[in-house]
C-alpha cells in the first residue's frame, strides 16, 4: 500500500526520486498532457453551466482521480515514488524545505519572477513552459506577494468543522465543506495557496509548477480528514442535478469513474 507523506519528512533520496520522475514525465511529453487536461476544465467549468473539475461538488473527487493518474504515471517511471503533500499551515515561508534547491527549487527573483534554482529552473533546460497563458517560457514564482499569509491551522479547522459536504447552488456561492475548502467562500484555503505561490500557479495553467501536486495532495488529505470527522455526512448531491456531478455520475474526461468510486482513498493509498 502506497504511503503519501508530508514533504517535510521525505529523505534526500525520496526527494531526488520524486524530482527525477517528474522530469522524466516532462521529457516524455506526458507531463504536459496533464496540464492540457486541467486547462480544459479550468476554462469550461462555469457557475451556471456544466462544471466538473472546479467550483462544483466533484472538485474533490475529480482532483483525487487526477492526482491518482499523475501518481500512477510517476510510478511507471519509478514504482517507489508517491505524491508528497505540502502542509502549508506549518511550512508557510519561502525558507521552508519545500523550496530548497534539491526539491522544488526556490522563489522567483525580483523583476521577472524567474525561478533560478533547482531542477525546474529555466536555465537547467529540463522544464520548458510549453502550455502557457503568456509568452514567458520560464517557471515563475512570487511567494507571499499576491497574498501575504497562507491559511492557518485555525482556518483549516474551521472549514473541517463544516458538517455538510456541499449545497445548492453547487457552485462558487455554495455553503458547505467543498466550497469553503476550494476557497470561493470562507477563510479561503485552496484558492489562496495558488495566489500565495504566484507565477504560473495563479494562472489556469497552474500544473506548470510541480508544487501544484503537493498542494492538491494536501487538499485531498483534508477531504479524507473531513470524512473521518463527519462519517455520517455523504457526498452531495446524491441524485441527478443539472450541470453537476451527482454521487453516481461519471466524470469527464475519463467517463469511467464516479464520485462514489473516489470516496475511499484507502483503496489506493494512505496518508502518513
Amino acid at each position: 500500500m502506497a504511503d503519501r507523506k508530508n514533504q517535510a519528512d521525505l529523505s534526500a533520496t525520496e526527494r531526488r526520486d520524486f524530482v527525477d520522475a517528474v522530469l522524466e514525465l516532462k521529457r516524455q511529453g506526458r507531463y504536459d498532457e496533464f496540464i492540457t487536461t486541467h486547462n480544459a476544465f479550468i476554462l469550461s467549468d462555469t457557475d451556471t453551466g456544466e462544471r466538473t473539475g472546479h467550483r462544483s461538488p466533484s472538485f474533490l473527487p475529480w482532483h483525487r482521480r487526477f492526482l491518482l493518474q499523475f501518481e500512477q504515471a510517476l510510478q511507471s517511471v519509478n514504482p517507489a515514488v508517491t505524491l508528497p503533500y505540502w502542509d502549508w499551515t506549518v511550512d508557510r515561508t519561502p525558507r521552508s524545505s519545500l523550496w530548497s534547491d534539491n526539491f522544488l527549487g526556490g522563489d522567483g527573483r525580483s523583476g521577472d519572477g524567474r525561478v533560478t534554482t533547482g531542477a525546474f529552473a529555466f536555465s537547467g533546460g529540463n522544464w520548458p513552459m510549453n502550455i502557457r497563458v503568456d509568452g514567458r517560457t520560464f517557471l515563475r514564482r512570487a511567494l507571499g506577494v499576491g497574498v501575504r499569509e497562507l491559511p492557518t491551522r485555525a482556518d483549516v479547522d474551521a472549514v473541517l468543522a463544516i458538517p455538510t459536504y456541499d449545497a445548492s447552488p453547487w457552485n462558487s456561492r455554495s455553503g458547505g465543506f467543498r466550497n469553503n475548502v476550494e476557497g470561493w467562500l470562507g477563510p479561503n484555503l485552496h484558492n489562496r495557496v495558488h495566489v500565495w505561490v504566484g507565477g504560473q500557479m495563479t494562472t489556469g495553467a497552474s500544473p506548470n509548477d510541480p508544487v501544484f501536486w503537493l498542494h492538491h495532495c494536501f487538499i485531498d488529505k483534508l477531504w479524507a480528514d473531513w470524512q473521518r470527522l463527519h462519517p455520517g455526512s455523504a457526498y452531495a448531491p446524491a441524485s441527478a442535478t443539472r450541470n453537476v456531478i451527482a454521487l453516481g455520475d461519471t466524470m469527464k474526461p475519463w467517463n469511467d469513474v464516479t464520485p462514489q468510486d473516489m470516496l475511499d482513498h484507502t483503496q489506493f493509498y494512505t496518508y502518513r
Binding site: I42, L43, T46, D47, G183, H194
Partner: peptide, 20 residues
C-alpha cells in the same frame, strides 16, 4: 484575455484564475 464571471457577479481571468 479569457475572462469568466462568477455567480456572485465577480470575475476571474485565465491569468488570475484563483482570485475574484
Amino acid at each position: 484575455l479569457h475572462v469568466m464571471q462568477n455567480a456572485d457577479g465577480t470575475w476571474i481571468s485565465v491569468v488570475n484564475h484563483y482570485e475574484k
